[in-house]
Design a protein around this nucleic acid. Structure first.
Lengths: 105, 105
DNA sequence: ACTATATTTCTAGAATTATCGAAATAATAG
DNA sequence: CTATTATTTCGATAATTCTAGAAATATAGT
């Protein structure tokens, strides 16, 4: 994952409301959760909720599947895993230096 | 780590400039790096750089130690590790449900 | 076609953020 | 104390984000 992509993902998660949305979807498991149920659970105005969900969708952290009149949201585990991998590989230890670095200890 | 704290940390890292700053400090290792050298490396106006560094400092991701006239910045590994632990524990798998959840599979 | 439910898009205002030049402050040397 | 280097704070502007009400759209049922 490129740094700019990682930053975009981090920014999407870097808002308490969106992080709550995302965590709720993770806890919903593979079945996901419709937008309306998220709205009931989190008590957010529909337009505001839609706005935040969209922010998560555009970076790929959440996907949506229509089921009749409801839109079911799913957390995308693999994107989150890529993000965590980026953080661990590039931002967690001194071994985060690139292989060609002349600064290796 | 609380959700709001995690969101604050994610927001701090969720900007390409700040993520570059943080990664540069990680790669600098335990010695850290002075503000001025960050400025040379990343080519950011001093006031802008100071602004971004401050954002990382207030959430604890970066610490600063003065050495004579220069301020040396250090990435705080442990805070990053706490953040990654939060993401893995709460936001990565279905096992992210709280222990008392009735929805456990 | 009409109705109902679910969700998004539009619009707008308040608040926050990013950027940077200029001035101010901190630490040291002379 | 003055000068010098390093860094921050101030002030201003442009851009973005957050919030939510109102209107619009999508899907299905009658």
């Amino acid at each position: 994952m490129k740094l700019d992509d990682a930053a975009a993902h981090l920014e999407a998660l870097g808002n308490p409301t969106r992080l709550k949305i995302y965590r709720t979807l993770i806890r919903a498991g593979g079945a996901g959760m419709p937008v309306g149920r998220l709205q009931d659970k989190l008590k957010i105005a529909p337009s505001t909720l839609s706005h935040h969900i969209k922010a998560l969708v555009v970076v790929g952290l959440v996907t949506q599947v229509r089921e009749a009149t409801t839109l079911v949201c799913h957390a995308n585990y693999s994107v989150m895993r890529e993000l965590v991998d980026f953080l661990v590989a590039e931002c967690c230890t001194e071994s985060a230096a690139p292989p060609d670095a002349k600064t290796a200890a």
